[in-house]
Lab assay of single mutants.
Amino acid sequence: PVYLSVKADNSMFIGNDPVTDETMITALNALTEGKKDTTIFFRADKTVDYETLMKVMDTLHQAGYLKIGLVG
């Protein structure tokens, strides 16, 4: 499974590897070998604001990742 996490300080990680807004999709493409039907499990600290969550989800959708599971 692929886990994308947003921490309380808005830092992002794919698994244990830090990513930025600019590198997130490139890292996901490498990890999933470009398979856009891969489910991305998205988790965020409860203090992360809604705007940040939606920005990340919008970026995922624009890149073609449509299977996003929200996890606690």
Rank of each mutant, 00 (worst) to 15 (best):
Y65P: 00
T23H: 06
R43T: 14
M54T: 10
E22K: 11
L66G: 06
D17T: 14
G72F: 10
I14N: 01
Y65A: 01
K46S: 13
V19F: 03
G34A: 04
M12Q: 02
E33F: 10
Q62W: 05
D49L: 11
I25K: 02
G34E: 05
G15C: 12
E22T: 10
I14F: 07
F42V: 15
T47V: 08
M57T: 04
F41Q: 06
L70T: 10
T52N: 06
S11Y: 06
V71G: 07
A27W: 10
L31M: 08
G72R: 11
N10R: 12
G64E: 02
T38Q: 09
M12Y: 14
K35T: 04
L31V: 11
T52A: 09
D17P: 01
T32Y: 04
L66E: 09
I68H: 03
G34Y: 05
H61Y: 13
G34K: 04
F13G: 01
M57P: 00
K55N: 08
E51L: 12
D49V: 09
S5K: 07
F41P: 01
L60A: 02
F13T: 07
K46N: 11
K35H: 10
T20W: 03
D21L: 15
L28V: 04
M12G: 01
K67L: 09
I25Y: 02
A27T: 14
Y50T: 10
P1R: 07
P18W: 07
G15A: 05
I40K: 00
E22L: 10
V48W: 03
V71E: 10
V6Y: 07
D17N: 15
K55S: 07
T47W: 11
M24V: 08
Y3K: 03
F42T: 03
T47G: 15
K46R: 09
V71N: 07
N10L: 14
A30Q: 12
T23S: 10
T39G: 04
A30M: 12
M24K: 00
V6G: 01
S5V: 15
G64M: 02
V6N: 01
A63N: 11
T38D: 03
D21Q: 15
D9Q: 06
N16L: 09
S11N: 08
G69K: 15
G69N: 15
D21G: 12
G69W: 15
E51S: 12
K35F: 07
K36G: 04
Y3G: 02
G64F: 01
K35M: 07
F13A: 05
T52Y: 14
V19S: 02
M24Y: 06
T59F: 09
T20E: 05
T26E: 14
M54F: 09
I25G: 02
D58A: 14
L53K: 06
G69C: 15
V56D: 00
A30S: 09
I40Q: 00
V2W: 02
K67S: 11
A44N: 05
T39I: 15
S5M: 12
K55C: 05
V71I: 14
V56K: 04
K55W: 12
L60Y: 00
E22N: 07
L70P: 06
G64L: 02
M54A: 10
L70V: 10
L66S: 10
E51R: 12
K55T: 06
T38M: 09
A44V: 14
E33W: 06
A30K: 13
V71F: 08
D21V: 15
Y3I: 13
G34M: 05
R43N: 12
Y65W: 05
D9C: 06
T38F: 08
D49N: 13
A27G: 04
Y65G: 00
L28N: 00
D9Y: 06
K36Y: 08
K67I: 13
H61P: 00
M12A: 02
G15K: 03
S11M: 11
D45L: 03
G69T: 15
V2H: 02
T47I: 06
S11H: 08
S5P: 01
V48N: 03
K36P: 05
L4D: 01
F41I: 14
V71W: 07
K36C: 04
T47M: 13
D37G: 10
V48G: 03
K67C: 11
T47Y: 12
K55Q: 07
I25N: 02
T23D: 10
M57C: 08
P1V: 12
K67V: 13
K36W: 05
A8F: 09
P18R: 12
K7P: 02
V56H: 04
G69V: 15
K55L: 08
